[in-house]
Design a protein around this nucleic acid. Sequence first.
DNA 1: CTTGGCACTCCAAATCGCCGAGTGCCAGGA
DNA 2: TCCTGGCACTCGGCGATTTGGAGTGCCAAG
Lengths: 353, 353
Amino acid sequence: MHADLTDKPLSERAQHLLKMLVERYIRDGEPVGSRTLSRDSGLDLSPASIRNVMADLEELGFVASPHTSAGRIPTVKGYRFFVDTLLTVKPLDMREVRLIKEQLDSEESHPQALLATASNMLSAITHMTGVVTLPRREHIAWRHIEFLHLSENRVLAILVVNEGEVQNRVLSLERSYNAAALLQISNYLNTHFVGKDIHAVRVELLNELRRTRERMNDLMLAAITMAEKVFETRGRATDRNYVMAGETNLMEWAELSDVEKLRRLFEAFNQKHDILHLLDKCTSADGVQIFIGEESGYKVLDECSVVTAPYSVGEEVVGVLGVIGPTRMAYERVIPLVDMTARLLSVALNPRK
Amino acid sequence: MHADLTDKPLSERAQHLLKMLVERYIRDGEPVGSRTLSRDSGLDLSPASIRNVMADLEELGFVASPHTSAGRIPTVKGYRFFVDTLLTVKPLDMREVRLIKEQLDSEESHPQALLATASNMLSAITHMTGVVTLPRREHIAWRHIEFLHLSENRVLAILVVNEGEVQNRVLSLERSYNAAALLQISNYLNTHFVGKDIHAVRVELLNELRRTRERMNDLMLAAITMAEKVFETRGRATDRNYVMAGETNLMEWAELSDVEKLRRLFEAFNQKHDILHLLDKCTSADGVQIFIGEESGYKVLDECSVVTAPYSVGEEVVGVLGVIGPTRMAYERVIPLVDMTARLLSVALNPRK
DNA sequence: CTTGGCACTCCAAATCGCCGAGTGCCAGGA
DNA sequence: TCCTGGCACTCGGCGATTTGGAGTGCCAAG
């Protein structure tokens, strides 16, 4: 045997051939044989020699052959090595960068729309699926609250936070309040809490409630109750979510053309749970993060890769965006794209002007 | 030949056999042969006789055979006749009715959530795709508007209409207004327009604008401009939309297992344009409406049927809900379900209590 | 270490034969 | 006039078989 396979890292030649193989396989999705590599690797080696190298690579787990006499395809380990050390990233086209910038600027600073746009672009450019999590900010600044009498004892509460994000909810209350009372309540809340962090507000409200329960006047109690109810909403509805685009693109990739697999994948997209969990992990990472095939840990994503990057508002990382596609994706183009989109989105979300 | 095929309506026997055939085909999705019908039709006829009838039905275009020696399957015309005159609707299970009612009641009158629930139930019960259009009311009552200063010349406008539906938008204005000015403007608008129909308000505003352009004070102009901008939003973002559920269910039907067809279908679902157009047609219909296969007029829906029913708030029809599935769907169960769901949704949406 | 040669393996596509289901038609019978 | 059994025929589906080609592993010679 060729001795010392396990400790020596990987010969220059083996690396080069692995790179060629992966690139080739990514390009046309078919197992790559020794003849092909001999022709196109630029190494001027006979197929036979290539076969020797391939045997080594297979033994090391970088490639595998679907059956005895087909070429080799990269394993997850192969992709991983390729991505980590062999990849030559193609810088983005200037046109593309400009395009993305323009798209993200045109959206008149409406954040929700920005996310959708980003997601759409990711999917359109890559022909895969784009995903952007809704931003979650650690610090949410109380801006304004307003109560509107609807009927008998139903009240509409409208809460504005940060740079103009609006939340609203219908509250069903024990008793009825007239317009003047509601105005008093909202005035009280607004003057006391404007600009404060919403979590702090919550704590403060709870304390207030505990401290003065008996001798508290109706108004205060109602104010706190309402505010509490509003918080419930915020906790529930906003509880992590994402915007996805181009799911159908995945149907065009041959390796995902199994209806049953597609169904499971799409169900996972709808369920959102697993995907969110995966994306949340990427919030902590510093830059682009890549999950190849089963690396993600979710079996529905077994044949997919996920490339993500966090985006931020100010200094704070608030969300993640990324691309989901087949393991056989053009990493050298997707990685810089995801990276750049995350940066540009961060810029576009930044609260200036 | 059997004479007079074209004018005589359809013999009792032929109708019965057609009914049997369609039901059978809907049940197990395979072409139905004469032997089968002879056995299960309850008519005590030999396969040979059945074949004669089948030949007639085929000539009349009610059934077709995929190839020489397979049984017959219903054509669109066959389904149509079946649905229009042969169908024996199965009344809904009491349990099901109760279930639907409970689900639609538990949603604390939050309309958006109600629609989603309805859509989900339709899809869950039928194992197909449920769809509910967002309600569009002819008359939208102005309730309250509020302006909030965000920065320099950006203002957040919050408009409340009807029973507490909230719309909001960030306005970029020519000049800057302080909090007091904004309050004045909103007061002006609220006192003048509260309770009025929003379209009337719009017309009134435009007139006002034209009539008093030169000698109009800043405040008025700003008020109108803002209100106009808010209306733009309402026109654009809300401009028809729907909630869909259970798209992936369609992947489990054998007749739709072609990935390419599925892709087109799902793309149509995402585009929304065609589906909306189709659903809008159903607003005018009185009750349940059915499109079988190509009847819909959209080629993506060629192999699908759509069953819809309008729902209303008060006396006014405001939206449509329905089910999308393969032509081979259990009409006798889907039709009453769609009907009932529409009724119950109408009840749940009704602004009482 | 490289390389050509060679035997071998295996998939994919084509071919064949056969079975069964179903049909159309016909002629005989109520 | 309608029903029915009989019969020849058609066609899709399935399994078995064949064939070609691509690719491999291994070996021995350069």
